[in-house]
Amino acid sequence: MTSVEFLLLVRGPLFAIATLVMIFGLTLRLFEIFMLGRKANLAATRAGGTGPGFRTMFRRFAPVDKATFSQSVLLTIAGYIFHIGLFITVFLYAAHVEIIGSVLGFRWPALPSPLVDFAAVLTMAALLALLWRRLTHPVVKYLTKADDLLVWALTFAPVLTGYLTYHHLVFSYSWLLAVHILSVELLMVAFPFTKLTHAITLFFSRWYTGAIAGEKGVQL
């Protein structure tokens, strides 16, 4: 198989399969989660839950309190850097905006490529730091299972291959681009069936937490 044939395969049928599996998996998981339902609240509601629910969804993007921060400095800093960096690389790189535009039909402005490049480097550094923590911190090490490492690898691979592709490093551009797209497709397929789903479900759980507290009278 030549690099061009491989590229055609990943941009064509494999991309379609990955997208469909992701959409299928996500709707399946969301329906499953919603059908779990909530226990009826037998206590009298003291205040509305909707407002605090929505506020909690976004308030929790803000940095954690000092006590938690001082306990896990690396986790907090590397965690923020990696998540923000990944967001920038995935959604604000010109070539990526093109893909999203071609699928969804609308586009947004992209950041200059060198900025995205910088974000990608920070993301990789933060991901490596978090992996190091996971493998050395006794408690985290004890709690780590195979799927944690899998999810780490699935997240790291697209950033690394994307970086190599952008800089034309090691292999030819066509091979790198194809491998990069393939790594993203693996991530897409795994997304609904692993811990990666938190990128979507976090909003529901935050809303739930905020709403429950609100109904009990704590207007977050």
């Binding site: 064509g12 991309f15 469909l20 599996v21 959409i23 709707t27």
Partner: peptide, 26 residues
């Protein structure tokens, strides 16, 4: 970098199948 397949047409079917499977699992 753009995909070569027409995704939007197939998304509906995938979402529907996912919904049905999700309800069944639920």
């Amino acid at each position: 970098s753009e995909p070569m397949v027409d995704i939007p047409k197939m998304v509906g079917a995938a979402a529907l199948a996912g919904g049905v499977a999700g309800v069944a699992t639920g």
